[in-house]
């Protein structure tokens, strides 16, 4: 069971959260298909420290960015 730190509610069980992917900045609409595909589909998918978005969907609804180790599941400071 993951225990994740919601910035609003504090540490809660993983069942209350939804994973939201890797944070990315949307490119301007006038870009090549390759740049757009890179933004929409390509992922770093790191093993180890991984910056990721989470939503406290079953709680307050807050979105937040978290760094988590994907090899150990440890939440990193």
């Amino acid at each position: 069971m993951l225990a994740l730190p919601c910035p609003h509610c504090g540490t809660r069980d993983e069942a209350e959260f939804q994973f939201g992917g890797e944070p990315a900045i949307r490119p301007p609409s006038a870009v090549t298909d390759t740049v757009w595909a890179d933004y929409v589909y390509m992922r770093s998918n790191e093993k180890g420290p991984h910056r990721e978005l989470w939503c406290h969907a079953g709680g307050c609804g807050q979105w937040f960015v978290l760094t988590r180790d994907t090899a150990t599941h440890a939440v990193l400071p």
Partner: peptide, 11 residues
């Protein structure tokens, strides 16, 4: 959620 841990969680 992304994982390389080769173990599943209880929920």
């Amino acid at each position: 959620y992304p994982s390389y841990a080769q173990r599943g969680n209880l929920p």
